[in-house]
């Protein structure tokens, strides 16, 4: 046994004992009246407020979406910034590996490489699958108000469709559809859309991300519908960034930063 394993075992056992000691004090699992679910007596419960009032406030049946994009929209914006920062960090780290100024090959390998018939089935299936996946991704983004889903999930699925193109054909085929310059631009535009909604609220003399004030801009009946529509806009912004960066991370990691002949 190596030294690090002994050390790890000791650290893990100590931490585990401390945590298990704390567990015995927890309210029961699944208890609807635990402090987390029903609040501490004497103060108003936040999560009960979300369940009972958020539909009236925002007119969005999916409570997770309304809490994510409206009540805690500031967190979600920084979640998107985290993704963007990760993308930037990966470009900066792997950029050193790539040839830098060398021109990139633009030729796209056909789906069926000459003589290589083993790829026919995979290539055809993926070609048929990709539009369906993309359509589903758009549905997930747009229908996040009424069903599970939203910007992140839809964005990741949309990125997955590009990754499938890259896997079934090659990286250039995917990069031709979403090029290096474009994915960076799309990622920035995504956060700009999100922050833009917030700043627009500030211009209308409210606080950042106070969507209710956008009623005169969005021409909705009542601030609640303005919140609902702004949430859709914000989710689209998130989807932009997530799609672009997830695909970009894959493209950089699979080609060691050169963006040429990936997996």
């Amino acid at each position: 046994m190596r030294l690090s394993q002994i050390f790890a075992t000791i650290a893990v056992v100590i931490t585990g004992c401390i945590l298990l000691y704390g567990v015995s004090d927890f309210p029961g699992f699944g208890d609807p009246h635990s402090p987390a679910n029903a609040g501490v007596p004497g103060s108003e419960s936040v999560s009960q407020y979300f369940i009972t009032e958020s539909y009236g406030d925002t007119k969005v049946p999916n409570l997770v979406t309304s809490v994510l994009a409206d009540y805690r929209g500031y967190d979600t914006m920084f979640e998107t910034v985290v993704i963007f920062a990760a993308g930037m960090a990966i470009f900066a780290i792997l950029g050193a590996v790539g040839g830098g100024g060398q021109p990139r090959e633009q030729s796209e390998e056909p789906f069926f490489v000459n003589g290589d018939h083993s790829r026919i089935i995979v290539g055809t299936t993926c070609r048929l699958l990709v539009p369906v996946i993309q359509l589903f991704a758009l549905y997930v983004i747009g229908h996040g108000h009424y069903s599970p889903g939203g910007g992140f999930q839809g964005g990741v699925i949309l990125a997955a469709s590009f990754i499938i193109i890259a896997l079934s054909s090659n990286l250039n085929a995917a990069l031709r559809r979403l090029s290096e310059a474009n994915y960076l631009r799309i990622a920035c535009i995504g956060i700009l859309i999100y922050a833009g909604f917030g700043v627009l609220c500030q211009v209308l003399e409210g606080n950042f991300l106070d969507y209710g004030l956008l009623q005169p801009v969005l021409l909705t009946d009542g601030p609640e519908m303005a919140r609902s529509h702004s949430m859709l806009g914000v989710e689209i912004g998130v989807a932009f960034t997530v799609t672009a960066i997830m695909f970009a991370i894959y493209a950089n990691l699979s080609s060691r930063g050169t963006l040429r002949d990936g997996l």
Binding site: P148, Q153, V156, I157, Y250, L253, G262
Partner: peptide, 22 residues
């Protein structure tokens, strides 16, 4: 459900693909 959806797309899909690429 929302967490499950995200985990299916991110945790099981993208993370595994990134790891395999590496």
């Amino acid at each position: 459900v929302d967490v499950a959806f995200t985990e299916a797309a991110v945790g099981a899909g993208i993370s595994a693909v990134l790891m395999i690429a590496t």
